[in-house]
């Protein structure tokens, strides 16, 4: 555990909390892609299948449970409790276009051809592209509420910090995981355009509005 990895985990946790608080306090999930949230729930479910078989640390297990619980709580709020506020007309990304390629790639490129390993790899590939429905939704409506952009910034920072962590681990312990690193780079690159808009607009007090 290094400071970048901890920072990444905390940014991820912050993103999840921002999203839950936004939905809970405004009693609305307007502007949030339920499709992306489905993909995140699927990601954590596939990745943390080892929760009961592979104990790493109390920190590790607690965070896994928190991420899983938050992912499903978000789905509950969006699809059950505040269903009426869900903006499904703008959330039209086809999930199979991301799930099927991620599953196919996980079957071909993995560390070991076993169920738990292929599921872990699938989760890594799926997470890399899970934000696309959300970014697609923002580009479709042309804008995002500030709170939604804070959520996206925290979520994007998480994998960016993980990349720094992987560079650090490579030099300090000779550790590297090509699958996680390449997928993590793809994941972070997807946020670059958003990062640019966030820094040039939202941090200056303006609403995140895409250029017409």
């Amino acid at each position: 555990m290094n400071i970048f990895r901890l920072g990444g985990d905390l940014a991820h946790l912050l993103a999840i909390i921002i999203l839950l608080l936004k939905i809970w306090t405004t009693r609305s999930c307007a502007g949030i892609s339920g499709k992306s949230q489905i993909l995140f729930a699927l990601t954590f479910t596939a990745r943390y299948l080892d929760l009961f078989t592979n104990f790493v640390s109390v920190y590790n297990s607690v965070m896994k449970v928190v991420y899983l619980a938050a992912a499903y709580a978000t789905l509950y709020l969006m699809y059950v409790k505040f269903k009426a506020t869900y903006d499904h007309n703008h959330d039209t990304f086809r999930l199979e276009f991301l799930i099927l390629p991620a599953a196919g790639l996980a079957l071909i490129i993995n560390h070991e051809f076993s169920i738990i390993e292929v599921m872990w790899t699938f989760s890594i590939y799926l997470e890399a592209v899970a934000i696309l429905p959300q970014l697609f939704m923002v580009s479709k409506t042309g804008e995002a509420e500030s709170i939604t952009s804070h959520y996206l910034f925290a979520l994007g920072s998480y994998r960016a910090l993980y990349i720094v962590n992987w560079v650090y681990r490579y030099y300090s312990e000779g550790f590297y995981d090509m699958i996680a690193t390449l997928a993590g780079v793809v994941q972070t690159v997807l946020y670059c355009d958003f990062f640019y808009l966030y820094i040039t607009k939202v941090l200056k007090g303006k609403k995140l509005q895409l250029p017409a």
């Binding site: 640390s57 560390h111 993980y162």
Partner: peptide, 10 residues
């Protein structure tokens, strides 16, 4: 060393 080690990450 390269594979599996990342399982300590989240």
């Amino acid at each position: 060393r390269a594979s599996h080690a990342s399982k300590d990450e989240l």
